[in-house]
Design a protein around this nucleic acid. Structure first.
Lengths: 372, 372
DNA sequence: TTGAAAGCGCTAACAT
DNA sequence: ATGTTAGCGCTTTCAA
């Protein structure tokens, strides 16, 4: 019975485009092709192709007519056929750090990947993930190898590769289209980038804490080569300075963005005579770890200590106390990175803009409280 | 400066397949095609196609020769060309419930989606998500519409659609290839399915609690039409019965798999004279909500109450106390669903098997403790 | 400014 | 059991 059912499906699959006239074929008319559009608008196939691809040498009047036909027929280009003719693979590469110590937390990365993957499907593109050690001397060669082997049309760089000037330069030289996720200020003029305004986010979060009456801060930074994480700290510094406080007099350490690092560093920061009243962590995973450590130390949260983070991961909502943080639309960032890369490949004018900031916002929950 | 850099990329992109002889073209030889393989193995192109597609009528000896050539040339089929010729769209649909009340928790679904998406890319397939109201009378028609509109080659059903016999039957009748994620026992004989053994998992988890000395239980079930969640409860019942306890004498409620539902139901279950000492939730999100509610009620965890769940979501690791749960490899389930669907489309023999269980395991953390 | 014609790499009729 | 021949829908010469 089971086998029979499956065999039936099989038989159909291989018959689908055969000559047999099926009920389906009779009922629905075939998907319109470029030739249908050409016929309806009374022009040649080549002309349709030209307007579809933003090509030159088409009279505005004709272009309009073609566009109307496209509309009327609900025509959509067949990306697979387009590739075959155009020689593109419709394949993108997403490069991330595989070095465990440098790896961004998994929610961050999964979200980025999911957003990117989702944006690929409608465009007929596919996305290949490529993890590599950021410290490897041959990292650039490794990326080129990957791109060549898989015939990628373009690549998306994630932190810390987003800030790797040498890599960026090599990609430019080899004329490989690419976009950077959350690049730091230093390279924003040179790369097409997508991310949130980390400096502003750090500033806002700190202002909020200042408004709550806090004066003694501590900060768990991320890794040095992640420029976006550094910007978070820079915004914090700016807010402090404006308030007449010296960032340099506040305790600071670094962690690799993980729960464990947050817990470990929090212990160091909190086991001191004059304990800080507010602890800022460069991301939520570390903030969650800090919460954990604080509980272990017997502190009452948020009465004894306010803890905040960045990202607004799902975890931040359910820990105790629920984390006050900055929401970063990570899936949207992944999606925009893909979209801008595709624009770049298509030579769209919109691709010219440099850095694109996606909106962030402060999410007030219960882990930060007024300090008297 | 910025514009110049980007223009350079653009110019190249559009020149890539032009007539200009680039250094790249000179350096690396073109990707091998099916004709290269045919030439090297001394057979016709059709024969190569046959072995590539597991077709019949190829002498074992010839098949071997072709396979060796494929190996030697590092040949990979061009899936886009294959589609164009074969009339398939290389597009799969993932159907999920969009009704907020019935929606599985987001980690569950994101993980499934990510696993499926990852499995698609290497095969040159793309995945389209389609959410629809499970209670809608036209749900079946809606799915067919979607499949036709997007020319999907096959569909993946997620709970609760996995257990929708009527839908399954319609798909079979319309000869649309499909696989079910976590189908219940009732339909496993008829569908190609992938999931974990929920009954066994429920049994193991309950045995563990029994071993800890618990005698008074409570269970927050999922929604009735999610057969896999029901199986979790069935396993619990079996373990209890074996231990001489009556499942019917233990308190039970239902929730829609969300944090909030877990919190709400926990309050009902725990605000009673003879409080249970162990609370089992059909998934981690509800268990997390239960933890939250128990904290609010002032219970000491896990001393006063043991709470456990299913899934092992990232959240379960960082809540307080860390959740003892059953690990469900959700990404793997998504990936296997895609792989089996593709096998089905390709008519692979391996596709004949019915339900495929992926391994689960008990993850002991700190939310369940010995009860004296 | 436009169109005709030649493929891109593959599968599937239809020979053989 | 294997090869020949047409296309699939599109982009890109090249000619008009």
């Amino acid at each position: 019975m089971r086998v029979a059912g499956i065999s039936a499906v099989k038989a159909v699959v291989s018959r689908v485009s055969g000559p047999t006239v099926t009920a389906e074929a009779a009922v629905k008319k075939a998907k319109p092709t470029i030739d249908d559009v050409a016929a309806l608008s009374g022009v040649g196939r080549t002309t349709v192709s030209r307007v579809l691809n933003n090509g030159p040498n088409v009279r505005p009047e004709v272009r309009l007519r073609v566009l109307q036909a496209v509309e009327a027929l609900h025509y959509k280009v067949n990306t697979q056929a387009r590739f075959l003719a155009g020689g593109r693979s419709q394949t993108l590469a997403l490069v991330h750090a595989s070095d465990p110590d440098a790896e961004p937390n998994s929610y961050y990365f999964s979200g980025l990947e999911l957003g990117a993957l989702r944006a690929c499907a409608p465009e007929g593109f596919r996305l290949l993930m490529h993890g590599l050690n950021q410290h490897a001397l041959n990292r650039i060669e490794a990326i080129f190898d990957f791109v060549r082997t898989h015939h990628c049309d373009g690549v998306i760089l994630t932190p810390p590769f987003s800030d790797d000037r040498e890599l960026h330069q090599a990609l430019l030289t080899q004329q490989i289209a690419h976009v950077a996720v959350s690049p730091g200020e230093a390279v924003r003029r040179q790369v097409v980038g997508v991310g949130m305004d980390d400096e502003a986010a750090g500033y806002e979060l700190t202002r909020y804490l200042l408004g709550l009456g806090h004066q003694r801060f501590a900060f768990i930074q991320g890794l040095e080569n992640h420029a976006s994480a550094e910007s978070r700290y820079a915004g914090y510094g700016r807010a402090l300075s404006e308030a007449g406080l010296s960032p340099l007099s506040m305790a600071t350490t670094r962690g690799n963005f993980t729960f464990r690092a947050g817990a470990d560093q929090a212990v160091r920061l909190l086991n001191v005579p004059q304990r800080p009243t507010a602890l800022i962590c460069a991301n939520d995973d570390m903030a969650t770890g800090a919460l954990f450590a604080a509980h272990r130390m017997g502190l009452r949260l948020p009465a004894d200590l306010s803890v905040v983070g960045f990202d607004d991961t799902p975890v931040s909502e359910v820990v105790w106390p629920p984390l006050t943080t900055i929401h970063q639309p990570i899936k949207q960032i992944g999606a925009r990175a893909v979209e801008r890369l595709i624009d770049l490949l298509n030579g769209a004018e919109s691709a010219d803009a440099g850095f694109e900031a996606v909106p962030h916002r402060l999410v007030v929950r219960e882990s930060a409280a007024r300090f008297e």
